[in-house]
Design a binder for these strands. Structure first.
Lengths: 172, 172
DNA sequence: CGACACATGTAACACGTTACATGATTTG
DNA sequence: CAAATCATGTAACGTGTTACATGTGTCG
């Protein structure tokens, strides 16, 4: 998040509200879960870390803006971020897997039921995402991002099939 | 994490070291990034929240064990966790997407280069995971989890191709 | 007049990560 | 004798989440 904001500021100085709007625009329908204060908190942390500087810009009738600009240290960090490959969180559906293992070993729930419920949920989300994708102009950024979501959901659905097979075998 | 430990304790009371070992066994090669103190911190938080109780079990020569057991409130929470579908984090590769957008708009780096670097990285990880999968007994839990990782990595790789096409078009 | 866009924040909290810290016993 | 295994933790930190808090201007 910090890096993202820094990179946006490296393009041109901006104030919090504007950054939030740009983020929402870039993310499209998936930007809905952004938090109100998140951007401002992050900006203040960046400021405290000496990566950006701010100046107030009054504009008469409208509320004042606080325009941020990266410091040299900030620009350096952006460059490093862009050059590094993504650390990329654990690629596996670890959480669900642990739930299934826990359910199986504790005998409090049937893993196959959980898999079924999860499959229904993922199918629902897949439909949502695909519907949202149709609403986006083809070739737009959000459309691309939504395609990424679709691919992942499909991958997870195929994995769920493998899970179902796994625990069905064990049950008998 | 809290829920996972609670569920394991619901099966049978255990001490921290044992839980850690069970987790590592369940996760297989992917359990390597578990932190030493993590389990203990979580257990203490669970205790503070009144979801587990602990009693010390001395065993003469060996260090004492602290055996944890869920409280009724804890068991209730496990039941709820198992019944609920996974909240499942954002299904889209948002982080990388934002990096690409930031790179493109700031002109500090070429998105296509970033995509290429990322592809090399994912291919490397895919090879790692597949090699690890061969070392696991077929049909084991860890093997299943590794298959999940493979499917996701393949999905992300296909998405990278879409990204490359997207920004190659824009460049011309 | 009510809703929405503009514009900014804070405080408390939960959680994972990192790194540090200790000490006995078994095994090669 | 060194290393691995058993066994437990703590302190500090960074970050995201939640919820709260405030105020103006415009448009229908």
């Amino acid at each position: 998040m910090q890096d993202v904001l820094l990179a946006l500021l490296a393009k041109e100085p901006a104030h919090g509200y504007d950054l939030r709007a740009r983020l929402r625009a870039a993310l499209g329908p998936l930007g809905g879960d952004l938090n109100d204060g998140q951007v401002y908190v992050t900006l203040r942390r960046l400021e405290k870390a000496g990566l950006v500087t701010a100046r107030l810009v009054g504009q008469g009738d409208r509320p004042d803006r606080k325009v941020y600009e990266p410091t040299p240290a900030g620009r350096e960090r952006v460059a490093r971020w862009l050059a590094d490959v993504d650390p990329a969180a654990r690629p596996a559906p670890t959480d669900l897997y642990l739930k299934l293992v826990a359910a199986a070993s504790s005998r409090l729930a049937d893993p196959v039921d959980i898999v079924d419920a999860q499959r229904r949920e993922l199918l629902r989300r897949l439909a949502d995402v695909q519907r949202a994708a149709l609403a986006e102009p083809a070739g737009s950024g959000p459309a691309l991002l939504l395609e990424g979501a679709v691919l992942r959901l499909q991958a997870d659905l195929r994995w769920l099939d493998a899970c179902a097979a796994h625990w069905t075998d064990r049950k008998k």
